[in-house]
Design a protein around this nucleic acid. Structure first.
Length: 610
RNA sequence: GCCCUCGUAGCUCAGUUGGAUAGAGCGAUCGCCUCCUAAGCGGUAGGUCACAGGUUCAAUUCCUGUCGAGGGCACCA
């Protein structure tokens, strides 16, 4: 059975400039093949065309002759000459050159670049969008933090990265479905509920020793206060009933260790006590209050951060719908499960995992992994062509077992991509901001947004490759200077708007002329550079999307802004020569459009003035 | 010990999925506002791409090994 290529894509018809040249090369190859100058049966390669790094090498270059040399049993240079000779004439290309050891370099006509301005102005906010995704359905799951507390800055990076990747994929024609997996069923949620209840008892006036494994954040007190407001002391119990006979907890700071101390056994016993003393209904109420309060906070936080999901998928619903049992049955009937030490194990080592994994614990409880198998089975059953999971890098060891499970289920595990996001480290005054979950002194996403603003947070988060540790300089993110890449790019956008306002004040006509009119007047070096950069934008969006690398876009926008600022410093736009002025205004309008489109994909505002 | 990610200028990072003389920003240093926002621009200095092999026309890029950094190796989520 044929395995589908990682990304099945339509040809990049929308990348006009580049694709036009590729078409010419393909025509040349077909010509050579027809003449018998190439091996008869050999398949023709798709020409690889790249932007020349050095302007001495023209605008584009291809290594086609070198790649083909062996196949054609010819010397690269000679083959290059044959290819060039076989190429149909085109007004795009002004000069072709063959360089050692066999590169074919293309020099483009100025008119080809002038046409880019026209294309941008005609396409507007659609410039850079394409259809290479061909409407394939892609699911992107990201953040998915346990609703046991507010999002912190680490989640923020996943949120920014995930949402920009989704934007990029949508821009190149994929049908994107963003999803947050809500872990609303697991033991961690029981620990949260129990933490809330213990704080409630404290509010009732009970004195108790808070468990080392409990959630200690202030938000737990807030939820407990809500509970106390609603029910007063009615749900109060004597703490002696809660704590007597419990296995000892691990020591917290300043305590000495007790014999047999085990924080896990201790907290599990506390959960059991909470369930027993509260009864099912009341326990469930406390549990739900904690879950819903925090989940509402997370939803609100992400919405304010400009992150929107199509779906919030409940882990609990997987159990309720029977999906978890169904997944386990499928594994069982496939012979992939076995019992040992009272637990049910999945033989993941048969699919390359390091060790086998438990799916049902000795005590009968499903593991998180069991739900996750069901969840990923469900994702593929929902018909997504591709599934992208974005996880914190600390979960990387989890990938082989999830892929193993999909294989064991008979699914195509290559449809799942897991992207890992490294941690973000905050710096203030050049010093690392200490963050430790244990001490409860982590910085929340909300605090970060309040401090540096949404735009800076979004931009900084995706500035680096995701598998790279991110040094997040808070002072830089807040600074209003060209050192700050967000302001630098936004300022370029605002500057164009400012120029247009100036023109209006001077009552100059700034309605741009139609089509390519007057663009031949753009002859300055700075204008050439800007045009070249503008023409690259669709290629940038495409590679950033396919490689899931938003940083390519931030990098590009800096370059574009730089080209613009340089141009701005070197030349007046609102010149007396009306024809030249028209051409320049069209160029800066096109620049503003591309800045706006790029910032839009990043979820960063494009201000009219600063 | 095993696995994953990473190692590029003093610092933070790019490097077009193997291409031609390895690039930005910051910091350092020298300059530019009677001119559309100086929240801007330009010049100079700064490199054994961690190291050693291999693959080929071509390696910062792919493979192997060594060294170094971070993370992961639960009947936790």
């Amino acid at each position: 059975m044929a395995v589908p290529a990682p990304w099945v894509m339509l040809p990049s018809r929308d990348l006009r400039m580049k694709q036009d040249i590729i078409n010419l090369l393909q025509a040349a190859l077909a010509q050579l093949a027809a003449n018998g100058q190439l091996m008869r049966d050999a398949p023709l390669p798709v020409p690889q065309l790249e932007r020349a790094r050095d302007s001495n090498h023209g605008d584009f270059a291809t290594n086609l002759a070198m790649v083909l040399a062996k196949l054609a049993r010819a010397k690269p240079r000679e083959l290059a000459e044959q290819i060039v000779a076989a190429m149909p004439a085109s007004p795009l290309i002004i000069q072709t050159e063959i360089a050692d050891p066999g590169f074919i370099n293309f020099f483009l006509a100025d008119a080809a670049y002038h046409a880019v301005v026209t294309q941008i102005l005609a396409a507007g906010s659609d410039f850079g969008r394409s259809r290479i995704g061909a409407g394939q359905r892609v699911q992107v799951e990201f953040v998915s933090a346990n609703p046991t507390g507010p999002l912190h800055v680490g989640h923020g990076r996943g949120a920014a990265y995930g949402t920009v990747v989704a934007n990029l994929l949508a821009a190149v024609g994929f049908n994107v479905h963003c999803e947050y997996y809500v872990n609303d069923a697991g033991r961690q949620m029981d620990i949260l509920g129990t933490s809330v209840w213990l704080r409630y008892l404290e509010l009732c006036g009970e004195a108790l020793r808070f468990p080392s494994n409990g959630y200690r954040g202030d938000y737990v007190w807030d939820i407990a206060a809500t509970l106390h407001r609603e029910h007063g002391d009615n749900w109060r119990v004597d703490v002696a009933q809660v704590f007597t006979g419990l296995p000892p907890d691990a020591p917290t700071e300043g305590e000495t260790a007790l014999i047999g101390a085990d924080k896990e056994l201790h907290i599990d016993a506390l959960i059991a006590a909470a369930k027993r003393l509260l009864g099912d209904n009341r326990y469930r109420y406390v549990f739900e209050l904690g879950l819903n309060t925090i989940l509402d906070d997370i939803r609100n936080d992400l919405a304010e951060f400009g992150v929107a999901y199509q779906e919030w998928y409940s882990e609990r619903s997987l159990t309720e719908s029977g999906a978890v049992n169904r997944a386990i049955e499928r594994l069982r009937s496939g012979g992939h499960l076995y019992e040992q030490d009272g637990a049910l194990w999945f033989r993941s080592t048969a699919f390359g995992d390091e060790k086998d994994r438990v799916v049902v614990r000795e005590n009968g409880q499903m593991t998180y992994f069991a739900s996750d198998i069901a969840y990923h089975m469900d994702k593929l059953e929902r018909g997504f062509d591709r599934v992208i999971d974005i996880w914190g890098a600390d979960h990387h060891g989890y990938i082989p077992r999830v892929k193993a499970a999909l294989q064991a289920l008979g699914d195509d595990a290559s449809r799942l991509d897991v992207l890992l996001v490294q941690f973000a480290i905050l710096y203030r005054d050049g010093v690392k901001v200490p963050m430790s979950t244990r001490a409860g002194e982590f910085v929340t996403l909300r605090e970060l947004r309040r401090e540096v603003g949404r735009d800076a947070a979004r931009f900084f988060y995706v500035m680096r490759r995701c598998e790279q540790h991110l040094d997040f300089d808070l002072d830089l993110a807040k600074s209003e200077s060209s050192d700050n890449p967000v302001y630098y790019v936004q300022y370029a956008h605002a500057r164009v708007s400012s120029v247009l306002r100036q023109a209006a004040e001077k009552t100059l006509m700034i309605d741009p002329s139609p089509g390519n009119t007057n663009l031949e007047r753009l002859t300055e070096n700075h204008e050439q550079a800007l045009l070249r950069t503008l023409s690259r934008y669709p290629e940038i969006v495409e590679t950033a999307a396919i490689k899931a690398e938003p940083h390519q876009l931030t990098q590009y926008l800096r370059e574009l802004a730089n080209d613009f600022h340089t141009y701005y410093n070197a030349h007046q736009f609102l010149v007396d020569d009306a024809v030249l002025r028209d051409a320049r205004i069209k160029l800066i309008l096109a620049t503003r459009q591309v800045l706006r489109n790029g910032l839009g994909l990043l979820g960063v505002t494009a201000p009219e003035s600063m």
